[in-house]
Design a protein around this nucleic acid. Structure first.
Lengths: 110, 110
DNA sequence: CCACCTCCTGTCGTATGTCTACAGGAGAAT
DNA sequence: ATTCTCCTGTAGACATACGACAGGAGGTGG
């Protein structure tokens, strides 16, 4: 029951997905793998968070999907950033930087 | 309606409060002022978040309260960290560092 | 003395988003 | 033929932050 839980902080998931997709179009499962790998297993995205997030982003027109075939010959939905999505990613990054900087300031206070 | 909203990310508020109290015992309203000031107005804690958070932390025995009188001669509840709270703060800091590092890794990917 | 402002604590309802658990189809491997 | 992996998805529970509202009590100004 120790807190070795590595939950993704609320609001961060969208940014991570957008960032992953800014590298290249990918399918949902691939996105989660990619993020987990890059973060060295610190960030793990559950399916129950992943797909709702993708649908949310799509509803907001930040990403769009096309059905295709994965490297393993499976049916997969390939997502890509829209231009709105790129703008959104930039905003979220900026806001993330401002936020972490502010938190850091508080944490550094003596 | 632009996103100039500076919400505190879920899970961060507790750490910020604990950190503030690690400086010295303070009352709730003072905590929010302090955090806002140190963060240069980036972090603003609403009353609707502040007091529930304080009660939550108290319930978990990370902080404890005594009624007292404020600098302005008002009734105020002074909170202070318990030893459990100090431990908790350390854990949350560590987990925060791991998390931001991981996110940074993802954001830096080219 | 009364009205008003500031300080300080608190609750209620709502929105959002993450988690766990569950479900299923379809290609590949044994 | 069965099982594994890949891939997508939903349902329900849960935590927590937010906006709006409420109120008591001291200080200040008319």
């Amino acid at each position: 029951m120790a807190t070795d839980n590595t939950d993704v902080l609320q609001g961060t998931l969208d940014m991570l997905i957008l960032k992953a997709l800014s590298l290249e179009p990918m399918h949902g499962w691939g996105i989660s793998q990619r993020i987990q790998q890059i973060s060295r297993d610190v960030l793990q995205i559950n399916q129950g968070s992943l797909y709702p997030a993708l649908h949310r982003l799509e509803r907001r027109a930040w990403i769009e999907a096309d059905w295709g075939t994965s490297e393993n010959n499976r049916r997969a939905k390939y997502y890509q950033l829209t231009s709105l999505g790129k703008k959104q990613l930039a905003e979220e990054r900026a806001s993330w930087q401002r936020f972490t900087l502010a938190v850091e300031r508080v944490l550094q206070t003596t």
